[in-house]
C-alpha cells in the first residue's frame, strides 16, 4: 500500500518535471526517430544478456524446487549452466569485435586468419580466438538438454507402467 502510494507520488513528480522541461526547452519535433547502426548490436547484446539471466534463473529454480535430485532435470540444469556460459562468451565476443571494435578478424584463407587488436595485446587476441570456438559450449548444452528430456520421458513411461 505504502509502496503503491510512493510509486504514485514518484510518477506524479516525473510527469511534473518532464512537463516543465518540455515547456521550458522547445526543440524541432521529428515524426520518426532515427536509429543508428550501433543500436542493432546493443539490442543483440541485450538479447544475450536476457538469455543469460533467464538461464541462470532456470538453473537456480531447478535447484530451488529440488528437481536436481532427478537425473533428467539435473542434466537440464547443467544445460542451462552451459547456455549461460555460452551467452557470456557471445557477449564478450560481440563486445570486443562489434561494440568497441577492439579486435579485427580478417580471413586470409580457410586455413588462416589475421586477428589484430587495437592495443596489440597478444593475450587478448588468444582469449578472443578461444572465445570464437563458442560451439564447444552451446553444442554440449544442447546435447544435455536432449539427454535430460530423454531421461524424463523414460521416467514418465516407467511411472505410467507402474500405475497400470
Amino acid at each position: 500500500m505504502l509502496f503503491k502510494s510512493l510509486l504514485s507520488i514518484e510518477r506524479f513528480l516525473q510527469i511534473l518535471i518532464y512537463s516543465a522541461l518540455t515547456i521550458l526547452s522547445p526543440h524541432l519535433a521529428y515524426a520518426t526517430q532515427m536509429h543508428s547502426a550501433a543500436e542493432g548490436v546493443i539490442v543483440h547484446q541485450i538479447g544475450h544478456l536476457f538469455f543469460l539471466i533467464s538461464m541462470i534463473i532456470l538453473y537456480f529454480t531447478i535447484r530451488g524446487k529440488s528437481l536436481d535430485s532427478q537425473q533428467g532435470w539435473r542434466l537440464i540444469q547443467l544445460s542451462a549452466l552451459l547456455f549461460s556460459l555460452w551467452n557470456l562468451d557471445a557477449l564478450i565476443v560481440h563486445f570486443l569485435d562489434n561494440q568497441i571494435d577492439m579486435i579485427y578478424l580478417t580471413n586470409i584463407s580457410i586455413f588462416e586468419a589475421q586477428i589484430d587488436s587495437v592495443n596489440n595485446s597478444k593475450p587478448l587476441i588468444l582469449f578472443y580466438y578461444f572465445l570464437r570456438l563458442d560451439h564447444l559450449l552451446s553444442l554440449p548444452a544442447m546435447i544435455l538438454l536432449w539427454r535430460g528430456l530423454s531421461l524424463i520421458l523414460k521416467q514418465n513411461l516407467a511411472n505410467q507402467e507402474l500405475i497400470k
Binding site: I110, E112, I115, I125, H135, S138, L139, M142
Partner: peptide, 24 residues
C-alpha cells in the same frame, strides 16, 4: 597476428549441424 582459421571453421560448421540435430 596470424592464427589457424580451420579450427574455428570446423567447430562452427560441425557445431551448427549438431545444434540443429540435437535441438530437433
Amino acid at each position: 597476428m596470424i592464427l589457424p582459421y580451420l579450427p574455428i571453421l570446423v567447430v562452427d560448421i560441425a557445431g551448427s549441424f549438431g545444434m540443429i540435430v540435437f535441438a530437433l
